[in-house]
Structures are given as C-alpha cells and as structure tokens.
Design a protein around this nucleic acid. Structure first.
Lengths: 228, 228
DNA sequence: AGGTGTGAACACTTTCACAGCA
DNA sequence: TGCTGTGAAAGTGTTCACACCT
C-alpha cells in the first residue's frame, strides 16, 4: 500500500497511519463514556469490544505513542483519556470557520456538539450577499469577501468547506493563503492543498455509491462482508 | 493489512477493495464532467490527474471489473462512464429513508443533488411528534413509529441515520428487520449490522480530530504529508 | 494468573515495469 | 508509437504469539 490513500505522521520514530489516528479518536470517545460511568480501569479487550476491533490492534495503536498500561491490570481510564487528548491535540480549543451557509453549512454551524468537542465556530461566510447578517445557530453570516481578514484577525485554525463543488478549490486556496492549518472538505470534488496543510474529505455521494456497489454485487457475486 | 478496516467483494474472481470502489465512484464523477464537456476519449493518465492518483492505479482499479480500454488509444468516455454505472449499481434508482429530522437530517432531505445522483428520498422520520407533518425539502416528516411500515410499503433500499448517538443502534436494528439493504450512519457511534447488510460511517468529529492530530504533530515531529 | 508491549508473520494495497495490442 | 492490462515487487497495515511485568 505504498503512498496509500492516507498519509502518515512520524511520531516516536515510527510512522503512524491515519487508520491508527482514527481509532485513537474512537477510543477517546469510548473512554469519555467509561469515565463518565465511573469506570476507572480498562483492558485492551474492553476497548476493542466497544470499538469493534481487536485487543492486539488497540495495544498496537497505543504503542505508537507510548506505554500507557500496567501489565496484568490494564489502563487507567482517566490517564489514557487524557494522554489521547494530548496526542490528538484535544487539550486545546480550535477555532473554525465554515464556508458556505447553505443547508449543510447552516446545519454544521448549528451543531452544538462542536463546542463540547473543543471546536469553536468563530465565523460562517457565504458569497450570497442576501444571507450576510443573518444568523445560523448563534453565528452571524459574514461575506466571503472578508474571509481572509477573518482568518487573520481571529487566528482561525480550521476551515470547513460547505460550498458547491466549483467554488471549493478557490475557497481552499484563499483559506490557505490566509494561514489556515487544516481543511475539512464536504464539497464533492478533490481539492488540493500544499504540503503541511491538513486535509480530510467527507464525500456523501461516494459513501452512498459504496453502498449501492455492495448491494449490487452481493446479489451477483459471492457472499457477505459489507462492513465499512 | 489483514482484515482491513474495509471489507471487500468478490467480483470476477478477485477481491475488490473498498478503496478501489471509492475511486471508481470518483472516476465516474470525473467522466460525467468530461462527457458533458464533449470529450470522448480519456487515458488512464488523464483520469489519474483529475482523480489525484496515478495511471497504474486507474488501470488496476478498472481491471478488477473487465477490460474497457483500447491499447494505444485510451477509454471511450461514454462507454466507461456507463460501465462504471453498471458496476456501482447506478443504472437504477435507489429509494432512501432518512431517520432524524434534526439539522443534519433536514439538510440532507433538502439536498437536491441526491435526485440527480439517482437517490430518491422517499421518507423522513423523526421521534419528535411535534415535527411530524412538517415539511423538509419537499418531504413530509413521518413518525418513527411508522418506520417499519414505510420501509415495507415503499420497498426502501437505503437508510440514512441522522439521529443522536443513543438512538442509532435501535433505529438500525429496526431498519434491518424491515428489510433495508444498506445503512449510511452519521451518528457518532459504531453501529452493528448483520452480514449481508451494507454499512458506511461518516463521523465528522473523527475527521476533525484527524486534522487536529496532523496539525499538532506536524509541529512536534517531522515534516509534511497531511493529505487525506 | 492476567494483561501489556512488540517483533515477526501474514494479509492486503499500490507501484513498477513490461508484454501485448491497436 | 502509444497506452492498456497485468504479473511481480515493494510498501503498509493487521494479527499472532509470546516474553515480560505486576
């Protein structure tokens, strides 16, 4: 899988795949629930069961970043949760701008959980002048013309692209030029960012078409295995 | 990468990875644009450039399903687009129910492109009685109590989960029991489906945390490579 | 005993490189 | 000549299995 669909980061002198990071995020979520439930020790087996993976995978994932467990005993829930937060950068708050105040952008701006997760929506911009000044989930829509100024003034870290496909690349370029550090792209197009800028894509039609493929070929070809 | 995060389908006597299927979706989108632009032949190199991959990958992806090109010449845009549609099951329309008429569910119900892509939103259900009867993007909200009946009556193929996390598994079980064939889950929880039922997850907070990890460790550890 | 941490084996994906055809 | 189709090589990710600690 050379030069895989996902790139990797060097940490502790080994490559850490994006898969491992994704699972770390999941473990973190599970640990939060356990912690809230008063559980204070957890085994790799427990985490694996909740995270729909296996114990060896959990231990391997954690081992990329350090040794957090106690042999014969397991992991301290609070300690591990807290360590994963540091690893993922969740021990600080992140400033986010959403570009595009259409249905999706507005829904995202109104998503209250962002705050609880450590992400502050500091601005929502749109190219449609008639939307400017309106409110969406407590955020006032600004003009996309002010995007560069907003990113600079508010030292925004992340940009969420919720524009139509044809506008996405232009907006991304503008965000990058303004100093953004990462982009979450919902537009159905492969945008380009320079090295050193983070990028994730969420492409709903690709996910849906993955399902229709599974269903279609499940009838035609051999059996099961449709898990994502 | 044994028993990878993605499962695979047997087609033409070889395993086809979910990665390949995802890219097929992307090639399809690119081909549509080319076709609309009047282009009638395309090389693996052209597709690779647009799809941010490489020519060998494109040819390998296609080779899982057949031989569609002409040596020395390339692929006929219309033929290839049409063959990929058959492979992905896009030569028929798909009936979809959205569960959860909150911000996200409503935004999805209003997403006009679904229709153009071959997906018909036949119902939108919610557990909040006060929303029942309201309209969202041309779809009237039904009660979640009627979910089983709706799936049966309208022979719904796919379910989109846009509920809070605690309700997701229950709804998925209900959909599966009612005969749904695939689930696209937006709830931030790992749901379980039986073998033979398609599942894809879109987890926005995991994507965001992937970005914060990249940014955080880019400062700490070695250089670039933050592509998704 | 019981569960972690990890090198090595295994499984899968991508890239290479070139034969083969139009 | 030019570009496809594909075995084989290279590169990654996951699972195994066991030494090691508590």
């Amino acid at each position: 899988m050379a030069r895989s669909p996902f790139a990797s980061q060097r940490v502790r002198d080994t490559r850490v795949s994006e898969y491992a990071v994704r699972r770390l995020s999941l473990y973190h979520r599970i640990l939060r629930v356990m912690e809230r439930g008063g559980q204070d020790v957890v085994s790799s087996d427990d985490l694996a069961r909740e995270g729909r993976t296996n114990a060896a995978q959990v231990r391997k994932d954690l081992s990329y970043f350090g040794t957090f467990g106690k042999r014969g005993r397991g992991y301290d829930v609070t300690v591990l949760r807290s360590r994963i937060e540091e690893i993922l950068g969740l021990d600080k708050r992140w400033r986010v701008v959403i570009v595009g105040a259409g249905r999706l952008g507005s829904a995202l701006a109104s998503y209250a959980d962002f705050g609880r997760l450590g992400f502050d929506i500091v601005a929502l911009v749109d190219s449609d002048g008639s939307k400017v000044g309106q409110e969406r989930g407590g955020v006032t829509v600004s003009s996309v013309a002010d995007l560069t100024a907003i990113v600079g003034r508010d030292t925004v870290d992340l940009g969420i692209i919720a524009t139509p496909a044809p506008e996405a690349q232009r907006v991304v370029d503008q965000l990058v030029a303004a100093g953004i550090k990462g982009v979450l792209n919902f537009a159905p197009v492969k945008v380009k960012v320079p090295d050193g800028i983070g990028l994730r894509n969420v492409d709903i039609s690709i996910e849906l078409e993955g399902l229709t493929f599974d269903i279609t070929s499940a009838g035609a070809a051999a059996g099961p295995g449709l898990e994502s």
